[in-house]
C-alpha cells in the first residue's frame, strides 16, 4: 500500500544515487546521439550502452535493468518519441539486450570481459528489434533482408562501445555503492 504521509523521509541510498547518476548519463548520451545524423535509419552507435555496461559491472544486473529502462523511457519523453513505433522498437531492443546481459554475466570472467557482454547484448538488441518489427510493424518476411547490414553495424558498434567500456572501467575508481542485498 502506498503511504503518502510518512514521518520518515525517504532516504536514497548510495546505490540509488549511483543508479540515478548512471541513468542520467545514459540519457545525456542518448540525446547527444539523437543529434548525430545517421546514414540509415536504425544505424547508430548506441553510446548509452556504455552506461548500462558500467552499471552491470559496478552495481549488478538489477541496476543495469533499471538504468537501461529508465534511460529508454526518459529519452522517449525528452525526444517526444514516447509510445511511437520507434520507442517500442527501442524498448524491445533494450529489454532483450538486458536479458542477454543477465545470461552473459554468468560467463566465466577469466575468459570473457565486458567486450563479450557488449557484443552479445548488441546482437540480442538487434534480434529483439527485428522480431518486434516482423511480428508487429512489418509483418512480411522481407524484414529479414535488413538483417545483414544491421548486424554488421551492430557488431561494429558493440565492439566499439565494449572497448570503450573496458578502458573506462580500468580508469574508474571502484564504486563505493554496494548492491542492495536481494530481498
Amino acid at each position: 500500500m502506498t503511504r503518502w504521509h510518512t514521518d520518515t523521509a525517504l532516504q536514497p541510498s548510495a546505490y540509488d544515487l549511483q543508479l540515478a547518476r548512471l541513468a542520467a548519463m545514459g540519457l545525456a548520451l542518448s540525446l547527444l546521439e539523437a543529434a548525430i545524423p545517421s546514414p540509415l535509419p536504425g544505424i547508430k552507435p548506441g553510446l548509452a550502452n556504455i552506461v548500462t555496461l558500467i552499471a552491470l559491472h559496478q552495481l549488478g544486473w538489477r541496476a543495469a535493468v533499471w538504468v537501461s529502462l529508465l534511460r529508454i523511457v526518459a529519452a522517449g519523453l525528452m525526444l517526444g518519441s514516447l509510445f511511437t513505433p520507434g520507442f517500442w522498437l527501442s524498448l524491445a531492443g533494450g529489454a532483450s539486450s538486458v536479458l542477454m546481459l543477465g545470461l552473459a554475466s554468468h560467463l566465466p570472467a577469466r575468459y570473457f570481459s565486458v567486450l563479450s557482454h557488449s557484443m552479445l547484448a548488441g546482437v540480442a538488441h538487434l534480434a529483439g528489434q527485428l522480431l518486434l518489427a516482423r511480428l508487429w510493424l512489418i509483418p512480411h518476411d522481407g524484414v529479414w533482408q535488413l538483417l545483414p547490414p544491421l548486424m554488421l553495424s551492430s557488431l561494429l558498434a558493440s565492439m566499439a562501445t565494449g572497448l570503450l567500456t573496458l578502458k573506462l572501467l580500468e580508469q574508474l575508481p571502484p564504486c563505493q555503492a554496494k548492491p542492495l542485498p536481494s530481498p
Partner: peptide, 26 residues
C-alpha cells in the same frame, strides 16, 4: 590488450554469422 581470449572467440563467431547472413540472405 584488455580483452580476453573468450572475447576473440565471440567476436569471431559473430563476425562469421554476420558474413553468413550476407551470404544467405543477400
Amino acid at each position: 590488450a584488455l580483452f580476453k581470449a573468450g572475447d576473440l572467440l565471440i567476436a569471431t563467431l559473430l563476425a562469421a554469422s554476420c558474413f553468413g547472413s550476407f551470404y544467405f540472405l543477400w
